[in-house]
């Protein structure tokens, strides 16, 4: 009889060979539920940004280690670049600097004249924002979002909401700030909108990121005066992007008979794939920093309404 009990008990003693702790299924259920709740908290509430910042800060040394090989390669390439190449580059840069100097002279007189005219008209004088030079440390690691990570963070006085430009045009906006790095969302990201103006006829609109390296302007009617090749510049009405910076060129216009709106596709002018340096413009002091893209979207939406009602009050282009 005892032997019989033993035979029945035998399978219940889990052999050490199959030890797995708590059942895989119950763990799966528990951790899935936990992940889903974390996702909900992260998407809807901003509680976890502190945790993220702390983690990224602790990860920073690792990031430096991971970036080291490419950094070494770049440094070595710089060091080994041939003499005549450097001379050529130097010549080209000198010429460029000279040309810019000439343009700058004109700009200075025009700027002075502009300020003079504005004071005559009791208008407010445009402020030139201060800027911090940053370098792209890597493209965002999530292929779904259009972001780049820049090697300047809250330790360098960077705040979320700052506009980012390169030598050609607007790149995007700082969306997350970590102690030593910050995340710049490109204007082509779906979450970002930028108030623009067509350079040719000063028509104002809002350009939205399309998510696929282009911009959309979904709220312009089919009969709008816009052509392929038109240059879009910032209108400066949102208080984030200074007016007059190049944003994009119109590349495709599609008018479908069933829609009252034209489908206007434009590609950004900034060339972040070709170089590493970016300028992070300081936020205007009167404006509050906009911590996340969602609120930014809402405010630009509101601004759009204001613009529509104030079409007659044309605001002159500030920096040109």
């Amino acid at each position: 009889m005892l032997k019989g009990i033993h035979q029945k008990l035998e399978p219940q003693q889990s052999p050490a060979f199959f030890v797995r702790g708590a059942g895989a299924f119950s763990r799966m259920v528990f951790f899935s539920a936990l992940s889903i709740s974390i996702m909900a908290v992260d998407a809807r509430l901003n509680y976890l940004s502190q945790l993220r910042q702390a983690f990224i800060a602790t990860l920073h040394p690792l990031e430096i280690v991971a970036n080291a090989p490419s950094q070494w390669y770049r440094d070595a390439k710089k060091y080994l670049s041939a003499h005549n190449q450097l001379v050529q580059e130097n010549d080209a840069l000198k010429q460029q600097a000279f040309e810019h100097q000439v343009l700058l002279q004109r700009l200075n007189t025009i700027g002075a004249e502009n300020i003079h005219l504005r004071t005559l008209l009791n208008g407010n004088i445009p402020i030139h924002p201060k800027a911090v030079l940053g370098e792209i440390s890597h493209m965002g690691r999530d292929p779904f979002t259009q972001t780049v990570v820049v090697n300047r963070g809250s330790q360098h006085g960077i705040k979320a909401g700052q506009a980012v430009v390169d030598d050609k045009g607007v790149v995007g906006q700082v969306t997350r700030v970590y102690p030593f790095t910050s995340e710049v969302t490109l204007i082509t990201d779906k979450a970002l909108a930028i108030p623009i103006q067509i350079e040719r006829n000063q028509l104002r609109a809002i350009a939205f990121g399309a998510g696929n390296h282009t911009l959309n302007m979904p709220d312009l009617p089919t009969n709008v005066d816009i052509k392929v090749g038109d240059k879009l510049v910032t209108s400066g009405i949102d208080g984030v992007y200074p007016a007059g910076l190049a944003v994009a060129t119109v590349t495709k216009i599609q008018q479908t008979p069933e829609s009252p709106f034209a489908k206007i596709v434009s590609t950004p002018i900034a060339e972040i794939a070709n170089h590493l340096q970016l300028l992070l413009l300081e936020l205007p002091e009167t404006e509050e920093a906009k911590p996340n893209t969602q609120s930014l979207l809402e405010t630009t939406e509101q601004k759009k309404d204001i613009v529509k009602t104030n079409q007659s009050k044309a605001k002159p282009n500030a920096s040109h």
Partner: peptide
């Protein structure tokens, strides 16, 4: 998730 800066919890899930 933390390293890529994506929505927290999606890779975990």
């Amino acid at each position: 998730d933390l390293a890529t800066g994506s929505l927290l919890g999606q890779h975990a899930f």
